[in-house]
């Protein structure tokens, strides 16, 4: 059965679409997104170097490591027991995996540290792409107090154009995450840790 309200919104839909069809300007082609024009590479450009500088500039820290054990050593020193750690990377033997948890994301509220594998990084803005499958629970990277992301140095691409060439449809939720949560709403004073993670540490594996 179609309710009165639905009929009304149907007619709004038809009305909006009809007006648009009538008022659309003449066809205009889409511009080329050729990388040679949109993302020319400067001589001597070093993607890892750029990623590092930008990340530090926006309040994140970067730790270059040789192997998983070094990440373990670094994090267990920084977050000694009884810190609550959710670690989604099996190679690092630390904290709990998500399997131990209930389905309710609210139970993650007291997580001190979340450790997540990022898919790749972007040099120009130090953003890291993660999707719902990497996150375990979609709330985790936002609700945790501190966040650690691990990427391979070789995964860093130059620009956002390169980034979207790497992204395919297989996700329900994905985010580019760049640095810790922040705000400058009070007199333009930068404060780290608005609502999301207060710190971001990026571990760079070879």
């Amino acid at each position: 059965m179609v309710s009165h309200k639905q009929t009304q919104s149907m007619s709004s839909r038809e009305k909006i679409l009809a007006t648009i069809k009538q008022n659309q300007p003449p066809a205009a082609p889409l511009p080329s997104l050729a990388l040679s024009d949109l993302a020319p590479v400067a001589p001597g450009f070093d993607a890892v170097q750029k990623f590092t500088t930008v990340l530090q500039g926006i309040g994140g820290s970067i730790v270059e490591v040789k192997n998983w054990d070094q990440i373990h050593a670094h994090l267990s020193a920084q977050f000694p027991s009884p810190a609550r750690i959710i670690n989604l990377i099996p190679e690092i033997h630390l904290g709990d995996s998500l399997n131990a948890l209930s389905a309710k994301p609210h139970t993650l509220e007291d997580v001190n540290l979340a450790v997540i594998k990022g898919q790749f990084g972007v040099a120009e803005n130090s953003a890291i792409w993660i999707t719902d499958t990497d996150m375990g629970d979609r709330a985790l990277p936002f609700i945790c107090e501190h966040l650690a992301l691990v990427i391979r140095a070789s995964s860093i691409v130059n620009t956002m154009h390169h980034a979207y060439e790497r992204i395919h449809t297989g996700y329900a939720f994905g985010t580019f995450l760049a640095g810790p949560s922040k705000t400058a709403d009070i007199e333009q004073s930068l404060v780290l840790g608005a609502h999301g993670a207060k710190t971001l540490t990026v571990f760079l594996l070879p």
Partner: peptide, 30 residues
């Protein structure tokens, strides 16, 4: 792929940041 163009422009034009901290793509509900 057109997001590549707009996400490069948006935060730089707004506040001078290279990108906002979170650029979240909501495709399907949890």
């Amino acid at each position: 792929k057109h997001l590549g163009v707009f996400l490069r422009l948006l935060a730089r034009s707004a506040t001078g940041q290279p990108i906002t901290t979170y650029s979240s793509h909501f495709r399907k509900p949890r």
